[in-house]
Design a protein around this nucleic acid. Sequence first.
DNA 1: TATAAATCCGATTTATTTAGTAGTATATAA
DNA 2: TTATATACTACTAAATAAATCGGATTTATA
Lengths: 151, 151
Amino acid sequence: MRISYKGDYALKAVLHLANRYEDGEVVPINEIAAANDIPRKFLEQIMLILKGAGLVDSRRGIGGGFFLKRPPAEIRLGEVVRLIEGDIEPIACAKTPPEPCCAEIGSCAFREIWAEVAAATAAIVDGVTFADIMRRQRELKSAHQGYHYEI
Amino acid sequence: MRISYKGDYALKAVLHLANRYEDGEVVPINEIAAANDIPRKFLEQIMLILKGAGLVDSRRGIGGGFFLKRPPAEIRLGEVVRLIEGDIEPIACAKTPPEPCCAEIGSCAFREIWAEVAAATAAIVDGVTFADIMRRQRELKSAHQGYHYEI
DNA sequence: TATAAATCCGATTTATTTAGTAGTATATAA
DNA sequence: TTATATACTACTAAATAAATCGGATTTATA
Ligand code: FES
Ligand code: FES
């Protein structure tokens, strides 16, 4: 499962909105783009995908912008990854139900290895919520601050 | 880590050679291509990559072909995958040592998740040899036979 | 020594995906 | 009514994937 720029941008945008989730803050796309070094028009397309999937919602016009429809603790990393990158499985036959791949799908010795890889990957990305990621981010920030002061 | 056609073909070719490894059999590319439904000229390129990496060797001319340089038990799936597909890591910052990715690599909350995914994937593909895959293939073949007889 | 069988190698081609950019339409708060 | 913001469609350039083409070279053997 390769993470493209599009996927990377989507994750950062969702994390940005997660950090502004309290009190239902609405964040304009310009802020998200500027803060995360994301091409603005590209981010527009990404936000529309996230909105289409019901993950975020938006308000138009002055004072408008985007916001999460669910609290960060209820959004799993895997959900965003699948939305943007598509299947987590490295090959179609590893999906459930399996889609045809080799000629003899019933006797392919590789298929179940890819299924194992998919399961292991899914366990990780579905085991982490954006609340977890926010917490981790705060830890890293304070650790980095620490280093800074020591210098 | 997405498996491309090229990677799929490479794995099948190596498995084909693994099945012919005993007594140092030499297998012409036409046989590998025909048996596995691989475009012949495309497979040529793939075999040259495998040869360049020292995984297989070849003999030219009449009676020539390809053969594994090492026994199947000493070739791990991950080795072939990395050769053809490149890095197993879903993003550059997850490599060791990490390559720059986001702006602030030291404080990115996603980085270690990708590193976990990479480690889990590597553990699977590096934990399986082509001898294991051959064994698994025989099991599947006989199971399939069984079903066949029951009908 | 000619011939057929096979690998070796570089170039070209076609289609798809990626990473954007452009332009316009629509909604909304002040 | 105007400035600010999203919504939507289309377009483009570059990279990658998946072959395909055309030969050059090596080698066993008839
Ligand atoms: S069935 Fe998918 S790799 Fe064999
Ligand atoms: S450093 Fe790679 S995703 Fe942030």
